[in-house]
Design a protein around this nucleic acid. Structure first.
Lengths: 158, 158
DNA sequence: GCACAATTGACAGCATGCTGCCAATATGGC
DNA sequence: GCCATATTGGCAGCATGCTGTCAATTGTGC
């Protein structure tokens, strides 16, 4: 069953879009299952990853920008992580209100554990592709997103 | 700002995963904005697309399988589309309970209109990539998903 | 220094994905 | 034919994304 000219919905980009949706869903489901034993979810794990990436120098707003999400989406997750004792807040010398989000020791341990669980899955998933091909694919996705967002911006101003 | 060895989270697949998340989010936001004037959302538009793809020969459960989503996720959208008068139900000769989901004439008009709005955006987004490259990228994503899901399956049984 | 814009977080509410549980309807083994 | 199983839809509830609005803080232009 291939999707040919069955409907007016037949653009070469559509197959890619559908595959992005499917892969996104599969990644979230897999991640949820993977880190559930640690009391995490995909979303909380991702936020921990962003905090690790910034080494505790980011406010919630910066985290959200880096992840491409709305501030409030990240804010709620961070608040829940704080309630669970996995992250905390440090005073920000540059901004009294925008505190810096840092991992607690417990948060660090959980994040390291999640990373260990993920590595073999990532190896197996990416193993079939040459590193070059993997990078090329990533670059192509980024380029597609760049042009999509340009379109969205232009479209709203015209 | 590149993400080097700042944390234990440093696998070549991670850049791709993050880009899939970002592109997925960008596509949904763009789609929501695009079809909002038609009274649609990304999710409803996608379900209409699946119905069009099956030409009205699919039950809700089949639609969900095709989209890689849980049945209930699709069920709610279909119910809402039915309430909005965009889809209807035909009796299924093979199953009294599992009715076939079909577009109403109004649903068809809305879907065609959405497709017209999407085409120039898709052209602009994919335009920077050769058709070959676009297909290759799509295939790579599908391959990654296949291996990811295999891992998930094996992992649960071992 | 002061008013105005931009940034940030708090709170409330919606859309869409998920799961779990139950009832109704096939389907298959006996 | 009958009972166990699978499939399907209905209902309820949760997680995570979004938006809009408001207050607190910071930065800018005069």
């Amino acid at each position: 069953m291939t999707d040919d000219a069955r409907s007016p919905f037949d653009h070469p980009a559509n197959a890619l879009v559908l595959e992005v949706f499917r892969l996104n869903g599969a990644l979230i489901r897999c991640g949820d299952a993977l880190v559930k034993p640690l009391g995490l979810t995909s979303a909380r794990w991702q936020v921990l990853g962003s905090i690790a990436h910034g080494r505790g120098t980011f406010s919630v707003a910066r985290l959200a920008d880096n992840m491409g999400l709305a501030r409030q989406s990240v804010q709620r997750i961070v608040d829940e992580l704080a309630e669970a004792g996995l992250v905390g807040f440090e005073p920000n010398p540059a901004h009294k209100r925008a505190k810096l989000v840092v991992m607690t020791p417990r948060g660090q341990r959980v994040f390291v554990r999640a990373t260990e669980l993920w590595r073999p899955i990532a190896d197996a998933m990416a193993g079939g592709l040459a590193l070059r091909e993997l990078r090329k694919t990533t670059d192509n996705l980024a380029a597609l997103r760049g042009r999509l967002e340009d379109q969205a911006d232009n479209g709203s101003s015209e």
